[in-house]
Design a protein around this nucleic acid. Structure first.
Lengths: 215, 215
DNA sequence: TGATACATACATTCGTGTATGTATGTAATA
DNA sequence: TATTACATACATACACGAATGTATGTATCA
């Protein structure tokens, strides 16, 4: 009805973003109308157009509110376990990604929207840029790690460090796919450490008799 | 402008489906208008509404035209290599999936549309059903194979056959993700056999000194 | 000659964007 | 301290295009 105080308007903005998450998740970005988002946030479209330029920038803001997977993960983990060997670092990163995917509901929602509720127009877009950047960052970070690991451990026969990091990228991408698309039947966090260790042992096979998974 | 012969009308139908593939891939299912699809197929919307009920059934027909990944793969491979050990069968299936993903352009287009150019409305839908069925079939087939393999080979420490098949599902799903989303930088077929062997060796580690990858 | 394989034309819906109205918070002024 | 003036935070109303679905026309095949 009228002018609100600053903190109230911030709350309104947040409510709009929350509502956008829910509506876009349920109906898809394209079919979720601003009217429905507004109604869920208990405002009118006027409020949305006050806080955001259009639907695209609303989506952008929604994405920006959550940290995307693997972003800054290496630095975080590195600070958390200073001096850790690269193989341990990689293991921790993967474990961390799985845990966040399993536990953080908002992260799940936003990733689900960006990955599966958003028709991408090759040239256009927001979420496409986000995905590209995410993919590239993840890949270069993992490649660097794999190269470091390869200094200490032999790679599986016929694999280059790039191959190894590509496999890890695919595995993680697949975990997101399966866990988000089929949450009822596919539980990522099930036995996560054993799975990750199995993959890493396949990529960097331990010399006979050595056990790395129990480190 | 007028009545065509039966075979001509079949050709028209195919042209419409081809056009739909291209337009939906480029703009997304939602933003690809029937007008644009018609124009690309050199017909009018009237022709589309003659052959299909609406856009949804057009999409359905498009999907039905192509074989989806992993479908019937076990039977095919089984016939191809009769009496093959389950581990070899699994290897062949994965290899086959990668090759099709790398080589079959129409398969790539349709999968790309279903996976990434289609906003899914949880209840609704066509492509969602297709995906669910695909996922379930793939999972049960792979689980059965992994259980058979586990009779012959020890599983990695702490892994159940279900864990192993879940990892394979995730890996394959991730390959589709990466290869379709980032075709310019991510080449699935690169070193495919070495990658698959590395994963399988991680899941079913060979006793020390044994080399399975060279079988 | 009737059914087929479309083209054409029209009505209707839906969502967006924008322009405008309006009541309140807030800072400056006196 | 009360008042003024302006910016803020929305709500309301309208204009517009785009896409869908349907009804109807029409030429040709069988």
């Amino acid at each position: 009805m009228a002018r609100k105080t600053k903190s109230e308007s911030v709350q309104t903005r947040e409510r709009i973003l929350d509502a956008a998450e829910i509506e876009m998740l349920a109906r898809g970005v394209g079919k979720a109308s601003l009217e429905q988002i507004a109604r869920r946030a208990a405002v009118t479209r006027g409020a949305i157009y006050w806080h955001f330029e259009d639907k695209t920038s609303l989506l952008q803001a929604m994405i920006a509110r959550t940290k995307m997977p693997m972003r800054d993960l290496r630095r975080c983990i590195g600070q958390h376990i200073p001096g850790a060997a690269p193989r341990e670092l990689l293991r921790e990163m993967m474990l961390h990604a799985v845990q966040r995917l399993a536990g953080d509901a908002q992260h799940r929602r936003v990733c689900h929207i960006v990955l599966h509720r958003c028709e991408i127009n090759d040239q256009e877009v927001t979420s496409n840029r986000v995905l590209e950047a995410m993919f590239d960052e993840t890949r270069t970070a993992l490649l660097a790690l794999c190269e470091e690991i390869a200094d200490d451990f032999p790679l599986a026969q016929g694999l280059s460090p790039a191959d190894a990091s590509d496999m890890i990228v695919a595995f993680l991408a697949g975990l997101y796919e399966c866990s988000l698309r089929h949450p009822a039947t596919y539980a990522v966090e099930n036995n996560a450490t054993a799975k990750i260790d199995a993959l890493l042992n396949g990529l960097f096979p331990a010399p006979a008799g050595t056990s790395l998974s129990a480190s």
